[in-house]
Design a protein around this nucleic acid. Structure first.
Length: 467
RNA sequence: GGUCCCAUCGUCUAGUGGUUAGGACGCUGGCCUCUCACGCCGGAAACCGGGGUUCAAGCCCCCGUGGGACUACCA
């Protein structure tokens, strides 16, 4: 019986949750769920200068919106410095670490010089064997092996071998007494019994150092899985200039969380030819073996397509809820039944919630403004008689359903021996003010007798006034 | 510069030695039709290059080339 699988997502609270981090979180979450394991959330806030509570909250909100629920945490790394310092002392006592008094300036100069002469810009070991004691601004460095190799057994990339001589003596405790990332992450992952570290592949070069730390501390080394990065359209690391990178920005732009999740999971992972996945399906199908090795470019068009798909599939009740913050002011007081019909009309033709809301304005408006030249072009004197007839006959209709209206409209045109085309656009303009909308029968049904009559009459007087 | 990673249509990807190289987004032709979408049918579009191994290579190996990451008292 193998131990229960435990994964973690460990963002640093120095900004919002971006899509790359979200995908990493998603993979961790799916892997844990698939194996009935535990998903831990840990906030890496040891950078006192850059970490903020606001960012922490933003990240938690984004996780919640995506539905990535965590089983343990959030733990805050900064609250665990006691543990980290204990471990530093342990390594110091065992001579596996040492105090270093080189200043940042000295180090910077050496680095520049090394770079200039084409040498390795790694720490030169000045203090390694001086056996120094703690001083005002001293740091603690890990005493790494100078020889041998360390191999990272990566579940995605395979075995990666590093020569230990390439690894320098990294700082594990800073001058301010706080641990550095590479040290704290090892302690925390070990103490939280993380079995699988799934993270971005920008961490692969850190991994051998971390493995050496696990070993020095006597901890079991977890399994690693480094997922490729998400790039922008120019193949550079995804950043703001490629468009929105914040998860919550997508919420604000009218995206559904399941669309983002579905899009993100397919960036680097696949299951045959399948494109659409429900959450239960993902949990069932997800595996690290199926994660690709190469980086992926973020493609907003495909995300948009998925969003349109999920809007089409969504229950109207649910969309009514999601649309709350997007509706025009006039829609806020509309009754729920009417609103749901409006949503049903718009669902098949909306790519985002924002698009849906902005297109919906005419349903809720008291008076219709005819867009551009639409009124001028379609509301002409020769069709006034038809509009009058419509206004007169509508109240008589017994079956005011979509099907009933279809019959009504067909009879209406047949009786007058005209093509439906003759009245379609004028009627559309009269009812919606636009040249583009859902079908006439759908719009009429949604609007209801009263509004249809009122708007038709308004169109007639518009024509009258034009004369 | 050094170390490490990566390489199939424009993009996301399927493919694990023998395929007309498949699907999806986008693009595009058509159908449907009251407009716009949806939907349906069709099309253009890819194995980075060079060497090997093999009867046979997109798949394996090597070398290039290109891209990326790391190289902090950031995470």
């Amino acid at each position: 019986m193998t131990a229960k699988i435990r994964t973690r997502f460990a963002p640093s609270p120095t900004g919002y949750l971006h899509v790359g981090g979200a995908r990493t979180a998603l993979f961790n979450w799916l892997f844990a769920r698939h194996h009935q394991g535990v998903f831990v959330l840990r906030i890496e806030d040891t950078d006192q200068a850059r970490s903020t509570d606001k960012s922490t909250k933003a990240i938690l909100d984004a996780m919640a919106w995506l539905g990535l629920t965590w089983d343990e945490g959030p733990f805050f790394q900064a609250q665990r410095v006691g543990l980290h310092r204990e471990m530093v002392q342990k390594l110091l006592a065992e001579k596996k670490a040492y105090y270093c008094t080189c200043t940042t300036e000295e180090l910077e100069e050496k680095r520049k010089k090394a770079l200039a002469t084409g040498e390795k810009p790694k720490y030169d070991g000045t203090c390694r064997d001086k056996n120094l004691s703690k001083t005002q601004n001293s740091v603690v460095r890990f005493r790494g092996d100078l020889t041998g190799t360390t191999v990272v057994k990566d579940l995605i990339k395979g075995n990666i071998t590093f020569n230990n001589e390439e690894l320098d003596d990294l700082i594990i405790e800073r001058g301010d007494g706080y641990p550095t990332y590479n040290f704290a992450v090892v302690i925390d992952d070990a103490l939280m019994n993380i079995t699988h570290v799934i993270r971005g592949d920008d961490h692969v070069n850190n991994t051998p150092r971390q493995i050496l730390l696990y070993q020095a501390l006597g901890f079991a080394v977890p399994q690693f899985a480094h997922v490729p990065m998400i790039l922008g359209s120019d193949k550079a690391r995804l950043s703001k200039r490629h468009g929105a990178t914040s998860v919550m920005a997508y919420k604000d732009m009218g995206f559904l969380p399941e669309a983002l999740v579905n899009y993100l999971v397919r960036l680097g992972w696949s299951a045959g030819d399948q494109e659409i996945f429900s959450l239960p399906e993902l949990i069932d199908l997800f595996s690290l073996e199926a994660v690709g090795k190469s980086p992926a470019i973020f493609n907003p068009d495909k995300l948009m397509w998925l969003n349109a798909h999920y809007i089409k599939e969504a229950k109207t009740d649910r969309l009514a809820e999601e649309l709350r913050s997007f509706w025009p002011a006039t829609a806020k007081s509309a009754d729920a039944e009417f609103t749901k019909k409006v949503i049903a009309d718009l669902q098949p033709r909306s790519k985002t919630l924002i698009e849906m809301a902005s297109f919906a304005d005419f349903y809720f408006a008291d008076t219709i403004n005819y867009e551009n030249e639409a009124g001028q072009k379609f509301l002409t004197p020769d069709i006034a008689e038809y509009l009058s007839a419509v206004a007169a006959e509508i109240p008589q209709i017994e079956d005011f359903s979509k099907a009933g209206l279809e019959v009504f409209l067909r009879d209406f045109t047949e009786k007058r021996n005209i093509k439906f085309k003759v009245i379609a656009q004028p009627l559309r303009i009269a009812l919606t003010g636009k040249t583009v909308s859902a079908g006439i029968d759908e719009v009429m049904f949604t609007l209801g007798k009263e509004r249809v009559v009122k708007r038709t009459i308004a169109a007639i007087s518009y024509i009258e006034k034009k004369k």
